Computed example of a mutant assay.
Amino acid sequence: MTAVDVAGQGVEQDSRRLLESSQTLSYDPTTEIDWESPLPDDQYGLNPKWSTLYGTPLWDELTEQQRITLTRHEVGSIMSTGIWFEMILQQMILRDQYVKDPANSEFQFALTEIADECRHSIMFARICQKLELPAYLPPKNVIEFARAFKSLAGGEVAYAGALVAEEVLDVMQRDWMRGENVLDVVRTSSKIHVVEESRHMKFAREETRAHMRGVGTAQRHASAMLVSAVAYVIVSNLVSPQVYKAVGIEPRRGLAAARANEHRKSMLRNACAGLMEFLDEAGLLTRPAVAVYKRVHMI
């Protein structure tokens, strides 16, 4: 039996287990989240320590109500970015599974993941609507980069790229779902996302491992750079500088403070530790890629 055959069997077995898990532990956001309750004025949009300005002089200048307002806009920006990337992810998975055997568990779980991502995007969209937030979208050049990426990326680049976004958000949301001072709609949506995305991350890891088996040195280095570029784009655009306008801070000033924020850099490095370990194991943590990850403080 070849290494490719073994890899295929591994993906199929894992997909079967993930399908069984999705049948027993999945959520419907339309009923799980209390959409009708009013939003308490004293609850944050996300744990304050995950705010881009937490630990900076700018944060100290804000009133408590301004801090609450800022975190609500920040979580809205993160959710808008999540919707944007989930749309990219769905297209990449569809292309990867195009005309594959529908009897395979891998194919069926891939479609299950797409269905999950659709529900998650609607859930995030409804939260932004409930919080009465504007649509925080990435800059035009990033949108065009992503348009090309989702049309061309495949194999280990598609799945490892998806894993980057999922892993970073997962660590954040594990904190948010436990935050007693965080809005209930955010806490509940975080719980739903963490539980269901854990299956997606396992699937992405196994697909990445399978695609990396037998890959040559040139392709491995090229893939590593592409994945690091995706990571750079995602992390750099999680929170739009426009959120600072909500509390009277000029966007450039807020962005400068966020970029210099040592607390945030430390939080990101800790959040990405498991991801970097996996990328290293998969052969996707080359020296040039490490340099890119360091620029966005993922290492």
Score class of each variant (00 low, 15 high):
D101L: 06
P102G: 08
A103E: 05
N104G: 15
N104M: 09
N104F: 06
N104E: 11
S105T: 13
F107R: 15
Q108R: 15
Q108C: 10
I114Q: 01
A115Q: 03
A115D: 00
D116S: 07
R119G: 01
R119V: 00
S121E: 03
I122W: 01
M123N: 04
I127N: 03
I127F: 04
C128L: 10
L131S: 08
L131R: 05
E132C: 03
L133P: 01
A135T: 02
A135Y: 14
Y136L: 06
L137T: 10
P138A: 07
K140D: 09
K140H: 08
N141W: 04
N141K: 08
V142I: 10
V142D: 02
E144T: 13
E144Q: 15
E144A: 12
R147M: 02
R147H: 09
A148M: 11
L152V: 11
G155S: 06
G155V: 06
V157H: 09
V157R: 12
A162Y: 06
L163N: 10
V164M: 01
A165S: 15
E167R: 14
E167P: 03
D170K: 13
V171Y: 13
Q173W: 03
R174I: 00
D175K: 14
D175N: 14
M177N: 06
M177Q: 10
M177A: 10
G179L: 04
G179N: 05
E180T: 12
V182W: 00
L183I: 11
D184V: 12
D184G: 07
R187K: 14
